[in-house]
Amino acid sequence: MRLPKSAYTSHPWRIHEVTKDFSVEDVWSFRTPGAGPDDFPTMVAALQARAGLAQQSWLSRLLFDIRWKLGALLGWDEPSAGVGARVTSLRDRLPSDVRDAPRGLDNENMPLKAVYELDMEAARELANKTVHTVMHLGWVQGANSDYELRMTVLVKPNGWFGRLYMAAIAPFRYLIVYPALTRQWERAWLDRDHVEGMSR
């Protein structure tokens, strides 16, 4: 479910300290029935187990396949345009207590790379010739007292081209990508016992 931007901006997340030059693009919530305050690491592990395009709908896979092919053709995703080249990693901005915390695991199936992972929030980032983007995951108490996962997408477009790119893909995000992601991530929570059993 899409949320107002205030659902993110009103919460004292640590990510605020290093993203003052980013704008809030999307805030989305995911139902995790029965979740408690200590279940964020369980949810992150469940998401890791379901990471990658292979787990998404065929339509989402098609959209991403088109995007990656366009990126390869037009040079959008060259290493020189990524984190550590065109832009510095947010890790370089982190206060020492967050930088010294566990970073979180990278997954070869996920293009976004870990910035940090705390007890109630985590962040990942990606950069190319269009944008520098951050996916922030937060764990908050929902209206029915269960805790729920919230995802915020923060962006810093790369000039006018980046702004046009974000506007062009907005309908696809709202109509196809996020609904499919909601089904995938909410299923990940429901299947978490299977994931935990595999990890033992």
Score class of each variant (00 low, 15 high):
residue 74 L to R: 14
residue 145 S to Q: 14
residue 106 D to L: 03
residue 53 L to Y: 13
residue 69 K to N: 13
residue 148 E to Y: 05
residue 88 T to A: 12
residue 75 G to I: 10
residue 46 A to P: 09
residue 62 L to E: 04
residue 29 S to H: 04
residue 32 T to W: 04
residue 153 V to L: 15
residue 75 G to D: 05
residue 136 H to P: 05
residue 111 P to W: 07
residue 51 A to N: 14
residue 90 L to G: 04
residue 82 G to K: 08
residue 150 R to V: 13
residue 86 R to C: 04
residue 129 K to H: 13
residue 131 V to W: 01
residue 119 D to W: 01
residue 61 R to Y: 07
residue 76 W to L: 10
residue 61 R to G: 03
residue 107 N to D: 15
residue 102 P to E: 10
residue 102 P to G: 07
residue 84 G to L: 05
residue 100 D to L: 14
residue 87 V to Q: 06
residue 35 A to S: 08
residue 39 D to K: 09
residue 42 T to Q: 12
residue 72 A to H: 14
residue 89 S to I: 01
residue 74 L to T: 12
residue 140 V to Y: 02
residue 88 T to D: 12
residue 18 V to H: 02
residue 38 D to Y: 13
residue 46 A to E: 03
residue 53 L to K: 04
residue 62 L to T: 13
residue 72 A to K: 15
residue 83 V to N: 05
residue 57 S to E: 10
residue 93 R to N: 01
residue 126 L to G: 00
residue 78 E to P: 00
residue 125 E to T: 01
residue 138 G to D: 02
residue 29 S to Y: 04
residue 153 V to E: 06
residue 91 R to I: 04
residue 27 V to C: 13
residue 92 D to A: 15
residue 84 G to T: 08
residue 73 L to R: 15
residue 36 G to I: 05
residue 125 E to M: 03
residue 95 P to H: 14
residue 94 L to M: 04
residue 45 A to N: 12
residue 31 R to E: 15
residue 121 E to S: 08
residue 109 N to F: 14
residue 130 T to H: 12
residue 51 A to Y: 08
residue 19 T to F: 03
residue 40 F to N: 03
residue 124 R to C: 04
residue 137 L to T: 08
residue 29 S to K: 12
residue 152 T to R: 09
residue 37 P to G: 11
residue 46 A to W: 04
residue 93 R to K: 14
residue 81 A to R: 15
residue 94 L to V: 08
residue 108 E to I: 10
residue 63 L to Q: 09
residue 122 A to K: 00
residue 102 P to V: 07
residue 34 G to M: 11
residue 101 A to G: 06
residue 61 R to I: 07
residue 82 G to W: 08
residue 27 V to Y: 02
residue 29 S to T: 14
residue 95 P to F: 09
residue 144 N to D: 15
residue 111 P to G: 09
residue 141 Q to S: 11
residue 54 A to I: 11
residue 72 A to I: 04
residue 49 A to W: 11
residue 34 G to D: 06
residue 124 R to N: 07
residue 46 A to N: 05
residue 96 S to Q: 14
residue 149 L to F: 10
residue 88 T to W: 02
residue 76 W to V: 03
residue 30 F to A: 03
residue 63 L to H: 07
residue 121 E to Y: 06
residue 139 W to C: 02
residue 149 L to G: 08
residue 131 V to M: 14
residue 153 V to T: 15
